[in-house]
Amino acid sequence: MALFVAKRLLMALATVLVVAVLAFLLVHAMPGSPGAVSLGAGASQDAIDQLNRQLGWNDPLVSQFARWLGDAAQGNLGVSLIDGRSITADLANRLPVTASLAAGATILSAVLGVALGVTAAVRGGLLDRAIGGFVGLLVALPAFWVGIIFVYLFAVQSSVFPATGYVPFEVSPQDWALSLALPVITLAVGGAAFIARQTRASMLEALQQEHIRTLRATATPTWKILYVHALRYASLPIVAGIALQFIGLFGGSVIAEQLFAMPGLGQAVQTSVSTHDAPAVQGVVVIATVVVVAVNLVLELATKFLDPKLRAS
């Protein structure tokens, strides 16, 4: 088990490093030098060249990357080319927004998805088919479109929730929850559908196992077979599915943040990409990767812990 954890940690580190290199290269392929981006249109070529030299833009790529990596390791992701603010500080402010969004959506999807999937598998018949159809519809609905409909229904027609904006938790926990509600629900629609499918399939697979028959042959009550034994067996693939879904929802937050004007990481990616703010893009890609990889690692270890075969070895 310790060896397994060490291996996974190493792989997570490697993943982050690979993405860092990738992001670095992508950023260097962006049109326009940092000097040009920073000084904006109308700057003289001399001034641009001068700034580029200052930023080390003309150094060999390897030494530029080494410098970036050294700074990043100390928590310094550089400054924005557009307004000179510290990227680390900016992202630190934005991370909680996206984290609440993605975590909220993941939890909501997991709860709804597992409930729907288990119900479909356990009840069968007409209800199973109805849930199947409903879930199929949810999977096909674009999140941003669902979001607009929610805004129309709950913010425009009846102002239950605020349509846009984000209130930090420290300011008002209640408003924080209200401001998260619509974006979280929006994201969870698709997520819940995916998890419902995964759960249904895993539950059916579990119920096909022969030990279920042994349990019945020893007069185990139906609820116990379903919710203790079958669900326990199905929990491995379900948790793996939830881990995968978290990655998707983290990405989906880009759209939710745009739609609901939330100052999160997704918004940062979107603006820094549109403004060609190279260090900001690089920083946010790496931070997003770190978060996703870390959460995945935790969920993966959880899955392994659920599996007696791996736990024992």
Binding site: M11, V18, L26, M30, I247, G251, V254, V269, T289
Partner: peptide, 24 residues
């Protein structure tokens, strides 16, 4: 399998956006 595992654990949307930054 290792390489694909790594690929699957990446925030794809964010990377695609960075790609758009580079190639338009």
């Amino acid at each position: 399998s290792r390489v694909t595992e790594v690929m699957m654990s990446l925030p794809g949307t964010v990377i695609i956006l960075a790609v758009i930054g580079a190639v338009g």
